[in-house]
Design a protein around this nucleic acid. Structure first.
Lengths: 266, 266
DNA sequence: GACATCACATTGTCCTGACATGTTCCCTGG
DNA sequence: CCAGGGAACATGTCAGGACAATGTGATGTC
């Protein structure tokens, strides 16, 4: 009953030669306004990313590390914890803290299509099809948590890469939230404009599905009627929990797929 | 930007100069093996979920709260921090800690299709089409980070609800990882079996796309050829960062869509 | 009346210290 | 030779205090 057919120490994971603590020369600057735990966390992250801390290697115990850096244990723990939250380190009671084996890095961000494309060197462009205000429909009002009929900013955009349509984006925002200039919308992404306006995005609820293109959708996206389209509906919330954006997006499945990474916290 | 339809400061801080926020009778059990910060966090979460702590309401300062509960401030902070991480609370230096406005709850979990369907009262069923080992192909070996040709457990399943096909699931696992009984696989989900075997799932990398059904796929899922299908590829890692599962899933877009919530940590 | 300044409240950071709990491994006793 | 116990060691939990940084509101000055 107690012995499962699983064994962590042997088996498929290449024979790990008992990990040994690594000792790197970290140092913190107490005169800096940057918090000490943050300085340490960044140095650790950098060391992991550059391979100076090998995957699977032990970090050395917290108390000794604290003493070597002239820090207290809670400070060191705070630094380590932030990297554990990022999925870079693993703590094991009685064992120690070790670097995660895999090469995964990004913990999952509330991604902006524009930024994603730009980062991928896809030279994105935007064509604003519509940018005006209208009274909130029942659906939009429910999604944004506002009264039906209140003023809502509606934006319809076509996102292109290399001159080819890639997605049709329709977004709804509370009208008073942000001044949206069509010119700027063609230059950058909506999320970046919102952040620049002092809105700190915090969480989003998404639904991703698929359906066959209608004739009209096909024409807009230069896909044949019936082609598979990827659909997304998203409501975004700021750090106080207010809904700040609701959108319906349609992507050409032949040119786009969502990629993201999930983290599970126990 | 200064006048939103919602304002945090008015309402309760007007009548009384000293805003005495919600004062609920929390209490911790020191004889319990459950950590104190965790007890407090659960009581707070429960109070938020049941509306005893209204959205937007202040939590009262940490020091006073600690005193009232007979706890130290770090313990109270740890409890609050865990809820901030979950997206239920917001801290503001100089202001206080508030309950977020929206009603969103689930922070996003590494979801199991089976559990999701069961939670939705869909009475899921599974038909195991294939369950055997084979040498790893190049694609699978790369995804799992093992040598090409090493033994891999292959599982093909059809997931049904109400007797109707909903998804076709193909998964690859390192052969030594887990003993997979086809009978058990028909009774529950793969993730639950892995967890029961002592594997703590930690993160996953997913790609979601769409495509038109081939004739064969259509037959398997009782969809017409050309119907829009939702596709997902996923690699799952355990808490040490080892890849423990790779899978290719195909969902009937007419019957299923992904829903999930993203959290952004600054 | 408008603007700068100060006091206050609150969270952010950091310290020291202590004990609890889970792992590993050696050493002892059989 | 094997099994069990316990020491050593690691992280987990908790306490109490101190000062810094920041947002708010009242005060004072021009």
């Amino acid at each position: 009953m107690s012995d499962f057919p699983v064994s962590f120490t042997d088996g498929y994971s290449r024979p790990v030669p008992k990990p040994e603590p690594v000792s790197l020369d970290f140092a913190v600057d107490r005169s800096s306004p940057v918090p000490l735990y943050y300085q340490l966390a960044q140095q650790l992250e950098s060391a992991i990313e550059h391979g100076r801390l090998a995957p699977g290697s032990l970090l050395g115990n917290e108390i000794e590390l604290a003493g070597r850096l002239g820090l207290s244990r809670p400070t060191v723990r705070q630094a380590i914890q932030s990297l554990v939250d990022k999925g870079l380190l693993v703590r094991r009671r009685g064992i120690g803290t070790q670097v995660v084996h895999s090469q995964v890095k990004r913990p999952l961000e509330l991604s902006s299509l524009y930024d994603d494309l730009q980062a991928a060197g896809q030279s994105p462009a935007t064509r604003v099809l519509r940018n005006e205000t209208e009274p909130a429909s029942a659906e939009v009002a429910a999604a944004l948590g506002v009264a039906e009929g209140s003023e809502i900013q509606v934006i319809e955009r076509l996102r292109l890469t290399h001159g080819e349509p890639m997605a049709y984006l329709c977004n709804y925002l509370p009208a008073q939230l942000l001044e949206l200039d069509s010119e700027r919308l063609e230059e950058t992404g909506l999320y970046r404009l919102m952040r620049a306006a002092g809105i700190t995005l915090h969480s989003a609820r998404q639904a991703v599905g698929a359906r066959n293109a209608t004739a009209e959708e096909g024409e807009q996206l230069t896909e044949p009627e019936g082609a598979a389209l990827l659909t997304m509906q998203r409501t975004t919330y700021d750090d106080t929990g207010r809904a700040v954006e609701y959108g319906t997006h349609i992507y050409r499945a032949s040119r786009y797929a969502f990629e993201f990474q999930l983290l599970v916290r126990p």
